[in-house]
Design a protein around this nucleic acid. Structure first.
Lengths: 139, 139
DNA sequence: AAGTATATTAGGAATATTACTATTTGGAGG
DNA sequence: CCTCCAAATAGTAATATTCCTAATATACTT
């Protein structure tokens, strides 16, 4: 998704469009694969030297909660990705390999769940943990 | 689930049963609700003064990946819970209220997904982000 | 176009988390 | 019961993340 398109979506969700947010989204776009918050900060700081850690970390979390960014937990670290399409991941608990899972059973369930719980769902986070074929064979 | 039962499950998954792990699981049990890793560390240290941070953090992650412990992200922090039954959460992005969702559409899907991806699934992590009724009304 | 309420930010200080390595320990196999 | 090896740990050092407050900027209202 284009940066401007993402920002427009954030705005309609009640968030303000700031230069910092634009810079963070563009940094994620440039990477194109899951990276640590620290790396996002360093990349964003190239375009905006004075940007603060707090701003980057806070916005990464907000983007995850808005359903725009995916967070992956692997090898004791959080990785962030701006996905080209909605998808999830499988993480190998042995070698930390990350596989993409295109299938998502949740988008259609969200509304029902939301109604039952009196909750307005904006996004969700899903990932699977297990062993990749290689690590499974060894163990 | 009883501590010994959890430890037995870990053993059959190839993990060693250590006193530290027992202490961590018992700390989580005593709380009975989602707490930060730091709180788990402090509680575990009461029973085992020399336990290290690394051990607590490493094992919390392992327990999440094994599907024994649930991790919740709310208000820029991670919370850990030893759930009485398998369930997930809805987190309000405004006030950080956490609701439990008993329904889980994934356990039955895991095997199919696993087969398709050549992946041995051990557990999964799922949570919803949105607005609780109260916060939705205000905004 | 100017005023205003409120979300957002910078910067630095405080904490939390992870990395690293020598040492220890669980438990499998003899 | 003893030995051995891989997994797990303590302790410390390095790093990453969050907290806090005054200042700023967005976007709504007039």
């Amino acid at each position: 998704m284009e940066t401007e398109q993402i920002l427009a979506r954030l705005r309609s969700a009640g968030h303000k469009v700031t230069e910092q947010r634009r810079v963070i989204i563009e940094a994620l776009t440039r990477f194109g694969y899951p990276v640590t918050a620290r790396k996002v900060y360093r990349e964003a700081a190239k375009a905006m030297p004075g940007i603060s850690h707090d701003t980057v970390y806070r916005n990464l979390e907000m983007l995850c909660q808005a359903g725009t960014v995916i967070q992956i937990r692997a090898k004791g670290a959080s990785l962030f990705e701006l996905p080209p399409t909605h998808h999830h991941h499988m993480v190998c608990v042995k070698c930390s390999k990350v596989l993409c899972v295109q299938y998502c059973p949740l988008t259609s369930e969200e509304k029902t769940l939301a109604r039952q719980h009196g909750f307005h769902v904006l996004g969700h986070h899903l990932e699977f943990y297990g062993l990749c074929l290689e690590c499974y064979r060894i163990s």
